[in-house]
């Protein structure tokens, strides 16, 4: 069974086509990396899975995107519930202007949970999951802006985990971070794989190689090659992939 599946997906910003006939199937509890040169459509594709592109005026999708065998673009789908199931981590850490605690509790609160004890427990587990607990446990009431960039990003991951999604989308989650924070997040991704299905956009070939099980290479809105990460990096079938991963263009 596939966790995520996209069939013949086209996507348009106004009249310009950003994605052309994308077919991908993603297995549960795997990490999938999306790579490709800037502007090739990675983010656009990633944001299809939690219908984030709906927010942009004048966009259009055709084809089907299935999560847990349900068409998420079908009529009557509740987008809020979908987004609860599909968490997202952004390129730059973007905590809310709230306390550390409230940042993580946010997703619970907006989804109607009011039980204080439950929230406290869940916040603690989530922060522990991202290995941030020891660093913040004494300042949960402080503003999230007081944390370092790397800590903020881990907090944002904890925030996504708190509502227990089954999929986590990450759009270049480490591109704004220093190497040490990056390493921590990569280790975290490896841990999270046990419970979640992860799709990650990255510009860093080494990172893709280190964290992902499968890799999809995009070029100008097309899916050029999609394969087991090891295979794709060591033995790509298509020359353009070869050129990209060896840094000959892009």
């Amino acid at each position: 069974m596939n966790k995520i599946e996209s069939r013949n997906v086209d996507f348009f910003y106004g009249s310009s086509q950003a994605l052309k006939n994308i077919n991908i199937a993603i297995k549960p509890n795997t990490v999938t990396a999306l790579i490709g040169p800037s502007g090739c459509g990675k983010s656009t594709y990633l944001r299809l899975f939690n219908r984030m592109n709906d927010l942009i005026d004048n966009t259009r999708i055709s084809g089907t995107v299935m999560i847990d065998d349900q068409d998420i673009y079908a009529k009557g789908v509740n987008v809020d519930s979908l987004r609860k199931k599909v968490g997202m981590v952004f390129q730059k850490p973007n905590p809310f202007p709230k306390t550390i605690f409230e940042n993580v509790a946010y997703g619970l609160r907006v989804n109607g949970i009011t039980d204080k004890k439950f929230i406290t427990e869940r916040v603690e587990t989530s922060i522990k999951q991202v290995a941030l607990w020891d660093e913040v446990k004494d300042k949960l009431k402080k503003s999230a802006f007081e944390l370092s960039g790397g800590q903020q990003q881990r907090l944002c991951i904890a925030r996504a985990l708190a509502i227990q999604p089954s999929i986590i989308l990450m759009d270049e989650p480490t591109s704004a971070l220093d190497p040490i924070s990056t390493a921590k997040i990569e280790a975290l991704i490896y841990e999270l794989k046990k419970e979640y299905t992860i799709v990650i956009v990255t510009h860093n070939m080494q990172q893709a190689g280190r964290v992902s099980d499968t890799t999809a290479f995009f070029y100008m809105g097309e899916l050029i090659e999609y394969d087991n990460t090891k295979t794709l990096f060591t033995n790509p079938k298509i020359e353009r992939t070869q050129n990209y991963i060896t840094g000959r263009f892009g």
């Binding site: 509740n78 809020d80 519930s81 989804n111 109607g112 949970i113 039980d115 439950f118």
Partner: peptide, 14 residues
């Protein structure tokens, strides 16, 4: 702890 009913929650939010 009982989680809120998905449909009720969604319609109340709406």
């Amino acid at each position: 702890m009982q989680l809120p009913d998905e449909h009720k929650l969604a319609s109340s939010k709406k």
